[in-house]
């Protein structure tokens, strides 16, 4: 009874909820840094751009890729991996220019560019000949 009373007002439900049990996996990432930016490469097979949510707040970059069941209720003859959502959070230590963060997704690989803010970029000091 309590369950029913909790959702009696449908407008209380903020997000679309899925009814089936969803597995969540930690995707594999490579992180590369140069003087200007950090680049994250992540394997997110089966994730489309519209099912991918990337947020950057309080120095935390969180990546959530939704993967809908590709074979509804099929009985596997042989199963070596699970299919489910991908979720991972990274703590980004250096000051990033949040407005310039860019991400692209191609063939199930996510690339996130995190440009460093001018303040933390290494500066080349010109040495003058005295």
């Amino acid at each position: 009874m309590s369950e029913i009373s909790k959702v009696k007002n449908p407008s209380d439900v903020a997000t679309v909820e899925r009814t089936e049990q969803v597995l969540t996996f930690t995707p594999r990432f490579d992180i590369w840094e140069n003087d200007d930016e950090l680049i994250l490469y992540g394997d997110l097979p089966g994730v489309s751009a519209e099912n991918l949510e990337i947020r950057f707040e309080e120095k935390q970059l969180s990546i959530h890729g939704r993967v809908d069941a590709r074979q509804g209720g099929v009985q596997y003859l042989y199963a070596e991996y699970g299919v489910g959502d991908f979720f991972r959070t990274f703590a980004i230590g250096e000051a990033m220019d949040a407005s310039k963060i860019a991400a692209e997704l191609k063939n199930g690989v996510l690339t996130v560019h995190l440009p460093k803010s001018e303040a933390v970029k290494p500066k080349r000091i010109e040495v003058r000949q005295a």
Binding site: R70, Q71, Y76, E80, Y81, G108, V109
Partner: peptide
């Protein structure tokens, strides 16, 4: 992952990129 229907076998693999 491997599954079947009456007429096919299906083999799936994750090969991102």
């Amino acid at each position: 992952n491997v599954w079947e229907d009456d007429n096919h076998y299906f083999v799936e693999a994750e090969l991102p990129g």
